[in-house]
């Protein structure tokens, strides 16, 4: 279904591909042609990026200090962010989530809050979100597979939500779970991972001002392939920590089991902070390919958020606690 808003013809500045990104694409196509494996790609104009499936605009989004200008890097275009996803609940191919999440209806949605917390219960999505102001935050997003994006998220600080839910003194960790519903999430019909997808943060990581509960991107509600209706965003950690389509938030005394750690503890640690000095056993993490760019760029320590988060890990051997 094509959803048209009242002034669909108005082009927002965010819809315009930044000039430098456009140039980078042209450069990529040229180089591909020169390399002799670009075939027709070099001579045929890049396809127009379709504007299908644009979501509902979110109201009252506040600006923050985390803007594109303060970051000084170009935004990844909407089409790439919403067509190139790792979301195994909808299939293991990069294009599978956009394809198979098309009919996924994220609402109505509810989230169970349990464990060491003063206000446990089942919260509807609206009850969970409404008391909070939505903010826009432009963050780098670094996948463990060595590609990256810059994404203008919309959401609320997880710290605010945690404070409202009231963790008890012995709550040391926050655990999250993704919806487990093979009927609606076709990728869950095969045991690629042990469903439901699980993630977790130490309490101080959850309370860090950078940690975000995202409900949108590019000023609009989250598309299903990006983890609608509510997901975590932890910008200094590899992307798989930023769990999608959350249905459960648990406050625990002990470190909770996490999905990729369960699948391969040697390759994916509980912390999984972006660390160019600590290679994945199967590939280097020193560099990354920013989507839309040809040459790889060096990966930054803590994905460029070292100043904000390094203090969380003082005294820890990050080669051991990867």
């Amino acid at each position: 279904m094509l959803i048209k808003s009242a002034n669909a013809s108005d082009v927002k500045s965010s819809e315009i591909t930044p000039k430098s990104l456009f140039d980078a694409r042209r450069q990529f196509l040229r180089t591909a042609a020169i390399a002799g494996v670009g075939f027709a790609a070099g001579s045929i104009a890049p396809p127009a990026f379709a504007r299908t499936g644009r979501g509902k605009k979110l109201a009252g989004v506040q600006p923050t200090k985390w803007t594109q200008d303060s970051l000084g890097e170009d935004l990844t275009d909407y089409e790439s962010i919403t067509s190139y996803n790792n979301f195994y609940e909808f299939g293991t191919g990069k294009q599978d989530p956009a394809l198979y999440a098309k009919d996924f209806q994220p609402k109505p949605w509810s989230v169970v809050v349990d464990g060491e917390v003063d206000n446990p219960g089942t919260y509807s999505y609206e009850d969970l979100i409404k008391p909070h102001k939505l903010e826009e935050r432009v963050y780098r997003f670094r996948c463990v597979e060595a590609w990256s994006m810059v994404i203008p998220w919309v959401g609320l600080p997880l710290a605010d939500l945690v404070k409202r839910l009231g963790p008890k003194n012995d709550a040391k960790y926050v655990a999250f779970e993704t919806l487990n519903d093979p009927e609606r999430m076709s990728g869950q019909r095969r045991q690629v991972l042990e469903w439901p997808y699980r993630e977790g943060l130490r309490m101080d990581e959850a309370m860090n001002p950078l940690t975000l509960m995202a409900v949108g991107l590019y000023g609009e509600e989250l598309p299903s392939q990006n983890g609608a209706p509510i997901r975590l965003v932890v910008p200094w950690k590899y992307g798989f920590k930023s769990i999608k389509s959350i249905v459960r938030i648990s406050f625990t005394k002990d470190q909770p089991p996490t999905s990729w750690n369960m699948a391969g503890a040697r390759e994916y640690g509980f912390y999984s902070n972006v660390n160019p000095g600590k290679n994945h056993p199967r590939w280097s993490q020193a560099k990354e390919r920013r989507i839309g760019e040809f040459l790889k760029r060096p990966t930054l320590s803590f994905n460029g958020y070292e100043e904000d988060v390094a203090a969380l890990y003082t005294g820890m051997d990050l080669n051991k606690f990867y």
Partner: peptide, 9 residues
Amino acid sequence: AYSGGLTAN
């Protein structure tokens, strides 16, 4: 390549 099927990467 022509039809835009090479993904974002």
